[in-house]
């Protein structure tokens, strides 16, 4: 722990990353207490106060139906984080299992699993997610599914490569000679040695998942109104540029802060865990 803290605090960029992520997570967690108008995350209409530039009490201005933009951005963070975490919780175990099996089991299993992975990797991610969302109804759950489908192959390729290297280590041979099961060797012997790389990638990816989810909703394929979402907020505001600039600039900045923060944190993790992928 001390070593971790030392490495992170020794680099100004890592400190910035930690601060940004702490701000994002804490504000999302305590949105009910820090936002001035918690009810504005839903269908509230206040036409007496619509499309106001930043001022007081609406520090980031109001949207086209008079809702406080700051409130909506903080609640959008909550949705984005939940989406990012759920996507990773689904994609990582799937990708890791496929990667371990492809790396450790025989040639036939490798062929089938890795060709399948490559097929998914060869489709541009946004196109894949768009086509899924085009077929399904655009809801939060379906959005998560779509992003998950495009995300797991990256983990299976990462873990596949790590497994190929680990499998040559003596401890794998030792477990085989003892007669341990393939399941034991894959998940108990090999997997823990892949954790540092997986954790680093997860931190970096949390930012990218948020970005992709925002892209989807920017295109109208993600979370639907009135649920606050950074991507759809940018899309709505884009029609009123440059006059009502706050409608796009602040949600855009919010996306930037989250993605940038997770990237800086991921780089710090890479240092701490000694992984260079």
């Amino acid at each position: 722990m001390q070593r971790t803290a030392k490495i992170i605090l020794s680099k100004p960029l890592s400190i910035i990353g930690v601060i940004l992520i702490a701000l994002v997570i804490l504000s999302a967690l305590f949105a009910d207490f820090i936002t001035p108008f918690p009810s504005h995350r839903g269908t509230v209409v206040d036409f007496s106060n619509f499309n106001q530039p930043p001022g007081w009490p609406n520090i980031m201005g109001t949207d086209l139906v008079g809702r406080d933009l700051f409130t909506r951005i903080i609640y959008a963070y909550r949705i984005s984080l939940i989406l990012g975490i759920v996507v990773l919780l689904l994609a990582v175990p799937l990708g890791v299992t496929v990667g371990l099996m492809a790396g450790y089991m025989g040639r036939k299993v490798r062929f089938v699993l890795m060709r399948m992975t490559e097929v998914f990797l060869s489709i541009p991610p946004l196109v894949l997610a768009m086509s899924i969302m085009g077929v399904l109804e655009p809801t939060l759950i379906n959005g998560m599914m779509a992003v998950t489908v495009m995300w797991w192959p990256w983990y299976s390729r990462l873990v596949y490569n790590l497994t190929l290297a680990e499998k040559e280590e003596g401890y794998v041979l030792a477990a085989e000679v003892i007669g341990a099961s393939k399941l034991h060797i894959m998940f108990i012997e090999i997997l823990p040695n892949c954790f540092p790389a997986i954790l680093t990638k997860m931190t970096l990816d949390l930012g990218f998942v948020i970005l992709i989810a925002s892209s989807l909703s920017f295109l109208g394929l993600g979370v639907q109104p009135p649920t606050p979402d950074l991507g759809s907020m940018v899309a709505e505001g884009a029609r009123y540029l440059p006059d009502s600039w706050w409608l796009t600039v602040f949600p855009g900045l919010a996306i930037l802060v989250a993605v940038f923060g997770f990237n800086l944190l991921g780089d710090a993790m890479r240092e701490v865990l000694g992984t260079h992928q």
Partner: peptide, 30 residues
């Protein structure tokens, strides 16, 4: 009944498991 001691002790012991867990494995398997 047939066991092995390898050349490189650093590689033959899993670095992410405690010594006790490494020694327990053959007991568990058999």
């Amino acid at each position: 009944v047939l066991q092995l001691v390898q050349q490189n002790p650093y590689s033959s012991i899993n670095p992410s498991r405690r010594i006790g867990a490494t020694l327990k494995l053959p007991l568990k398997v058999h």
